[in-house]
Design a protein around this nucleic acid. Structure first.
Lengths: 145, 145
DNA sequence: CAAATTTCAGTTCCACTGAGATGG
DNA sequence: CCCATCTCAGTGAAACTGAAATTT
């Protein structure tokens, strides 16, 4: 009846790559659950955040800036359009491209999701005192090549 | 000729969960490439490591200790058997079980893969000086709840 | 060539099946 | 001995990913 995850080999426990992967899995689970509880997904937050900072953008630019697959961009945007969070219309100056624009509803939604995301960070970093949380975050940021 | 990753929104860059996910993706890519170069995979390393530390085990126990799906255990073991790295035989005391045993060849293979994995850690942590590498590793280890 | 979509191979994850074990 | 329930190993099918091909 129990979940009984076994004990990982010590060989793995000492590898930064393993620890990173374990932490990322846990992080992803927390994030997915927290967003699902308010009827959203990680993709939505990423897209809303990018639109808020970059202003109206094409789907391709959007996808590249948050590292999303083109297909996921298309499908997530369809959802967001359905909820009135963004508008998708052909660019008047270039009829090939779709310009995506954040609506007032979308901006409000983003603010709500910001709160949810802050909660996720708290859960994720719960085992560490505040000073260590900052250290870990700074180290992870420097890890990007 | 460039990959043209866009710049992620600042909102994401400040989130530990995002940084973690980015680092894990990079780590996974480095690991997959390095193991592929010697004709192996992450699954193989995990299974060999678990067998080396736990001794002969059933497939189910093996899968739980390294967090692998039953299906992936079955198929990876078939590969390992094919290369003579492990032996798979019915457990005499419980005929449902397959007892998996590391061979001398498998042990030798594990040692080789250990080297490869060390190389991966070096690449992964390349942006950090040694002292910070230790700090990051320790913080990640404490992150596990 | 560029943007958007479609296609396809590779991977991961879930659910079912049949054989075997376990406890009442 | 039978029955309900569990575990084990194997496999099908679905969801997802990333890259190449195709369309507009």
């Amino acid at each position: 009846m129990d979940q009984e995850r076994g004990v990982p080999p010590a060989r793995l426990q000492r590898l930064p790559s393993w620890l990173l992967s374990q932490a990322a899995v846990r992080s992803h689970r927390l994030l997915t659950e927290a967003l699902a509880a308010v009827g959203s997904r990680g993709y939505e937050y990423r897209l809303l955040a990018a639109l808020d900072e970059q202003g109206p953008s094409s789907q391709a630019v959007l996808g590249r800036s948050v590292g999303m697959d083109r297909r996921d961009v298309t499908m997530s945007l369809a959802d967001l359009v359905g909820h009135g969070a963004v508008r998708r219309a052909p660019d008047p100056s270039d009829s090939r491209r779709n310009l995506v624009t954040l609506t007032a509803t979308g901006h409000k939604r983003l603010k709500e999701l910001d709160q949810v995301m802050d909660g996720v960070q708290d859960q994720l970093l719960a085992p560490l005192p505040p000073a260590d949380r900052k250290r870990l975050t700074a180290l992870l940021a420097r890890l990007q090549p």
